[in-house]
């Protein structure tokens, strides 16, 4: 059967925390080296996915001028990613895309920036291209032009970045988001209670599911999707949701699940994951505005594109949330 168990997601894209740290470090390290050598880090991308770094000669002058250009730290890179991951959710909502598109785009974005530093590729462009790719892969086609229009961006940029994204994803395009797993567990609960399931119970399950989805939304913004399989994320979300609504006896539900499973998974292991996932969510923080604009400035000078005045203006704007969801994307570092 073709399912999660035999998927590339499981085989290649669920990491240990150590491995994840290493990957972030390697990407950061490489960008630092480039900065040192070339004076700027932003890569030129071709539609066919070929890449190049800034030419050292041209950059030489910059090296002098920007001798103070400092690379981003790993934590700072994280801040930038967090910012754009939120943007993905916003843009997808404003387009009224199905949930799975948002989840797929987010996972693509995360995987992409496992391979690359935000200093090498503009996360705004990558974000939009990830959304475009997610629409394509999930058979919910939106033309590049339409997407570009919706967010007032040149759609050629999207097409230009498409190939490098697929390559960085190693063409592993099918991803498993926890939302479907949540649905699966809910169906399972309903089935188990089938005989005594009345309308009230069904309504409560619905509430349970809705809250669990919000819980998943939160997890999707952390590293959790790179560390845990979707089923565990879903179950944790349901656990948290149930703690709030007290719909079912979660412990006995867990036992029933694990008794049905082959002994591959043990309940105790799951509890460990559950705690780890929750701790990731607790530790998650959206960067402060001030911090964010400081990092943006740094990032722009790494790219070698900075124009300080302009970026300041943008940062101010970008703090205004509300309706401008999608158009806001462009106010972020470009």
């Amino acid at each position: 059967m073709a399912d999660f168990l035999t998927s590339t997601h499981r085989a290649k894209w669920v990491f240990t925390p150590q491995h994840l740290v290493e990957k972030y470090r390697a990407a950061n390290q490489r960008a630092r080296q480039v900065l040192e050598k070339c004076g700027a880090t932003l890569m030129e991308i071709d539609a066919d996915g070929s890449l190049s770094y800034p030419e050292p000669q041209i950059a030489k002058a910059n090296v002098e001028k920007h001798s103070r250009t400092k690379p981003l730290s790993i934590d700072e890179e994280q801040c930038i990613r967090v910012f754009f991951e939120n943007k993905i959710q916003e843009v997808c909502k404003s387009f009224h895309f199905p949930h799975k598109i948002q989840a797929t785009a987010l996972i693509y974005f995360k995987r992409f920036f496992l391979q690359w530093s935000v200093m090498e590729h503009q996360p705004k462009n990558i974000m939009l291209t990830c959304i475009y790719a997610a629409c394509k892969i999930e058979e919910n086609h939106v033309s590049a032009e339409e997407l570009g229009k919706g967010i007032q961006q040149d759609h050629h940029m999207i097409l230009n970045n498409e190939m490098i994204i697929y390559q960085s994803l190693e063409f592993d395009l099918i991803v498993y988001a926890p939302y479907r797993s949540v649905e699966g567990f809910i169906n399972d609960m309903q089935w188990q209670e089938f005989c005594n399931a009345d309308d009230d119970f069904l309504q409560m399950l619905k509430t349970l599911q809705d809250t669990a989805r919000l819980e998943v939304d939160k997890m999707m913004l952390t590293d959790a999707p790179l560390l845990f399989p979707p089923g565990q994320l879903a179950l944790t979300a349901l656990h948290n949701s149930n703690a709030l609504h007290k719909v079912i006896d979660f412990d006995s539900y867990l036992s029933s699940i694990f008794s049905r499973q082959n002994p591959v998974h043990r309940e105790s292991e799951f509890i460990e994951s559950l705690n780890a996932i929750n701790s990731l969510v607790r530790k998650y923080k959206f960067p402060e505005r001030k911090e964010q604009s400081h990092i943006n400035r740094k990032l722009e000078s790494c790219w070698g594109l900075s124009s300080h005045d302009e970026s300041k203006k943008r940062e101010k704007k970008s703090k205004h949330k509300s309706k401008k969801n999608s158009s806001e994307a462009q106010n972020a570092p470009s």
């Binding site: 035999t6 998927s7 539609a47 086609h141 590049a144 498409e162 063409f171 395009l173 099918i174």
Partner: peptide
């Protein structure tokens, strides 16, 4: 083949890759 693509990477190729990676 990638030329003449207004929508970038051909959807047919995406489907084929997606499907073949899933089927064993």
């Amino acid at each position: 083949r990638m030329d003449n693509e207004r929508e970038g990477f051909p959807i047919t190729a995406i489907r084929e890759i997606k499907i073949l990676k899933k089927l064993h």
